[in-house]
């Protein structure tokens, strides 16, 4: 489904974020991308949505080279990929329902379809009763669940989660990953960037460990031991 072939990314200031990455991710995989801050975890995810373009190498999504997708077709790629951002990226002036509905509005779904599918997504992440709340009225865990609901409501093939447990307490963080695991079991491929060792070690998934832009370890049921 996703393949990185000799991918390197260097920023204009000369900083090398990724260096010769070779990685293959099959459909329905759940992969933790681990590593310390600055290891290149977020850069790796942003290459998949073409927010960034690799300096060399190829990133393939279902055998299509992402770098070669023209600007006017980019939306088609992004509709197949859900993203949960480190900083949530929720619109504070919109309710939970409206934030989640945004993913379906861009697909030009009807109001009745939006109503049905948003309610289903909110129910799946367990915050249906908070549909009319604004993000400022939610707890950290609920905000993250809203972000996950927005990412999964359009039923993407891949879900990218960039440090989704970063600001959460251990119990809530665990609940969020349990939710991601549930989504993965329904067939969605999940790539989760994290440096939360407790979470990685508890869930026993494939772990790709990055260090200074290089893959240091790639283990099937891996563990993460911070340096």
């Amino acid at each position: 489904m996703l393949e990185f072939i000799a991918v390197s990314k260097q920023f204009p200031d000369g900083q090398v974020a990724l260096d010769d990455i070779n990685l293959k991710i099959e459909g329905s995989d759940f992969v933790f991308i681990t590593g310390p801050s600055g290891a290149g975890k977020s850069t790796l995810l942003r290459l998949i949505t073409k927010e960034l373009v690799s300096t060399s190498g190829q990133v393939l999504f279902n055998e299509d080279d992402i770098a070669k997708i023209p600007e006017n077709k980019l939306h088609i790629l992004r509709r197949r990929i859900g993203t949960v951002f480190q900083d949530f990226k929720l619109l504070l002036s919109r309710t939970v329902f409206e934030n989640v509905a945004l993913s379906l509005e861009v697909l030009k779904k009807s109001d009745s379809e939006i109503e049905k599918e948003v309610s289903e997504a909110l129910e799946k992440v367990g915050i249906l009763e908070k549909a009319d709340y604004f993000p400022a009225q939610l707890s950290g865990g609920e905000v993250q669940r809203t972000a996950i609901a927005r990412a999964i409501v359009s039923k993407p093939e891949v879900l990218l989660a960039d440090e989704p447990t970063g600001d959460l307490d251990p119990k809530t963080a665990e609940q969020v990953v349990e939710l991601l695991e549930k989504i993965n079991k329904e067939g969605t491929t999940i790539l989760m960037a994290t440096h939360n060792a407790a979470i990685v070690n508890k869930f026993k998934k494939r772990v790709v460990h990055l260090k200074k832009g290089k893959i240091e370890k790639d283990q099937k049921e891996g563990k993460y031991e911070p340096d």
Binding site: T49, K89, L91, L102, S103, R150, S154
Partner: peptide, 16 residues
Amino acid sequence: REEVSIMSLVGATKWY
């Protein structure tokens, strides 16, 4: 700006 950036990331076309 933020809304525009989110819309773009969730798959909105430029025209949308």
